Amino acid sequence: MCSSLSSALSPSTVVTRLRAAGCVFAEDEAELLISAAQSPDALAAMVERRVVGLPLEHVIGWAEFCGLRIAVDAGVFVPRRRTEFLVAEAAALARPGAVVVDLCCGSGALGAALATALEGAELHAADIDPAAVRCARRNVGAVDGQVYEGDLYEPLPDALRGRVDVLLANTPYVPTEEIGLLPAEARIHEARVALDGGLDGLDVQRRVAAAAAQWLAPGGHLLVETSERQAPVTVETFAGNGLIPRVVTSDELYATVVVGTRPAGDPHAPE
């Protein structure tokens, strides 16, 4: 840290202000803010934004996800660490050169991380939120992927039907009546469309599952993140739409993922 920055706002002062604002990892956050600031005035402004409640990732402009630095613009859903489990499960199922689609992509973190882990992956991503699409184009473009704006499958190229090996869909799954219980960072500063899953939290997930078999290649996989409480309903939804479901969990990350596989011998022709 340069001396001019130090004299303007010391690390200990930054930590004190962050801790007083309720930041649990004040020391770590202070280090990130100081390293990201280009001037003493910039640091002061960043600390103020964080103190009044903006997510750290929106303040510094990026989030760490699967070892990558993912650009995260204001208002865009911040990728959660627990979702790294979904990417790891997808990577274990996929092969080099796989066709990957990331629906409800937000910043594009999942698709970018999976494409980074898979040699020669063909990546496509989509989101209905224009701000998310703009952000995702930076992250997905960095791994030679394409991003489309629109509702779920609607903007995807028709040529992808029946060709998708891995379909990632980190759909919103918070029940509408529980949105008010979320931390203020999410409730106030992230797009509601990225959080609100409808009455039981599974409205968008049902829509994804209903059309998945049309887009998946035989033997292809749909992966969604959900809660332990919601997983049984997700399993029923997948099975009802011709997918073979299974549930995988991570106690360490408190993550629940449901994987639905289109049977390899499925005679269904994409419509």
Rank of each mutant, 00 (worst) to 15 (best):
C2P: 13
S3L: 14
S6T: 14
S7Q: 14
S7W: 14
A8H: 07
L9Y: 08
S10I: 06
S12C: 07
V15D: 09
V15P: 03
L18R: 09
A20H: 09
A21G: 08
A21C: 10
G22W: 02
C23S: 14
E27D: 15
E27C: 10
E27N: 13
A30P: 07
A37E: 06
S39P: 02
P40Y: 11
L43P: 05
L43C: 01
L43D: 02
R49M: 11
R49Q: 12
G53I: 00
L54W: 14
L56I: 08
V59Q: 01
I60E: 08
A63P: 00
E64V: 10
L68A: 06
I70Q: 01
I70E: 01
G75L: 04
F77V: 01
V78S: 02
P79V: 00
R80I: 04
R82Y: 04
E84V: 03
V87G: 03
L93A: 14
C104V: 01
C105K: 07
A109N: 05
G111P: 02
G111V: 05
A112M: 01
T116M: 09
T116F: 07
L118M: 02
E119H: 12
D127A: 01
D129R: 01
A132D: 00
A132V: 01
C135P: 02
R137C: 11
R137I: 06
R137Y: 01
V143P: 03
G145I: 11
Q146H: 14
L152M: 12
L152T: 12
P155R: 12
P155I: 15
L156N: 12
L156W: 11
P157N: 10
D158L: 15
A159Q: 15
R161G: 00
G162A: 12
R163Q: 12
V164Q: 07
D165C: 13
P172H: 08
P172R: 09
P172F: 06
V174K: 05
P175M: 06
E177I: 11
L181I: 02
L182Q: 10
E185T: 09
A186L: 08
R187K: 10
R187C: 04
R187L: 06
A191N: 02
V193E: 02
V193P: 01
A194T: 02
D196V: 00
G198Q: 00
L199A: 13
D200F: 04
L202S: 02
D203M: 05
Q205M: 15
A209N: 05
A209I: 07
A212H: 03
W215C: 03
W215M: 02
H221N: 13
E225F: 07
R229G: 12
Q230T: 09
V235H: 08
E236I: 10
F238P: 10
A239P: 04
N241E: 10
N241D: 08
G242Y: 05
G242S: 03
R246Q: 12
R246V: 13
V247W: 04
V248S: 11
T249F: 04
S250V: 02
V257M: 08
V258Q: 05
V259Y: 08
D266T: 10
A269E: 14
A269N: 08
P270F: 08
